[in-house]
């Protein structure tokens, strides 16, 4: 998570729910990069996409603007920032707690190579079963991956062998 300066406008923007997982805010997900003020653009909210094709970006921009307008900030500009690319490591501890509370397994720390991320070739996970996260319902670690892709770009699908329930997980990137 990028350290952001807190301000009244930041607090309003930070409370914007994510369109796909609305119990989490964009601050919880680490999508909110900064909230600044300039005399030319008014309140400038900088957000980052989780995935290149994330269709929620537009909804988020509209929601952030509407919330700020309602809170009395008339001029709002929403800017995008691509670099450095979003990582699930930016999901806050509070965000991870909320994910688990709604039955979505939070992501483990993304691949250890944090800073100079892909300096070398990216390893192929061929034949190596990717680790499946613990079951958010019963806590069992005996779970299996059923699909690397799920209802949204950022999640994978799993099944708990202990309680038999399927569940989603936010996949580490």
């Amino acid at each position: 998570m990028v350290a952001a300066t807190r301000s009244p406008a930041y607090d309003v923007a930070a409370g914007t729910p994510d369109p796909e997982i609305p119990t989490l805010t964009i601050e919880d997900l680490g999508i909110l990069r900064s909230v600044d003020y300039s005399s030319r653009d008014g309140v400038v909210v900088t957000i980052t996409p989780t995935y290149s094709g994330c269709p929620a970006m537009r909804e988020i921009a509209a929601d952030v603007t509407a919330r700020l307008n309602r809170a009395g900030f008339e001029r709002v500009t929403v800017a995008t920032q691509l670099a450095p690319p979003w990582s699930t490591d930016w999901i806050t501890p509070e965000g991870k707690r909320k994910l688990a509370a709604v039955g979505i397994a939070p992501p483990p720390e993304a691949r250890a190579s944090a800073a100079p991320r892909h300096a070398g070739p990216i390893p192929l996970t061929l034949g190596r079963r990717p680790p499946s996260p613990g079951c958010p319902r019963c806590g069992s670690l005996d779970t299996q991956l059923t699909a690397q892709f799920s209802a949204t770009a950022c999640k994978s699908l799993h099944r708990c062998n202990a309680c038999g329930e399927p569940f989603e997980a936010v996949k580490p990137i």
Partner: peptide, 27 residues
Amino acid sequence: DPVLAAIAAKGVNELAYHRDYAASWVV
């Protein structure tokens, strides 16, 4: 080009998942 570099860096994480998906099915 910093813009192309940022687009590419963003795509890397996605493409790694695509390749793993395709490779596992080919196997």
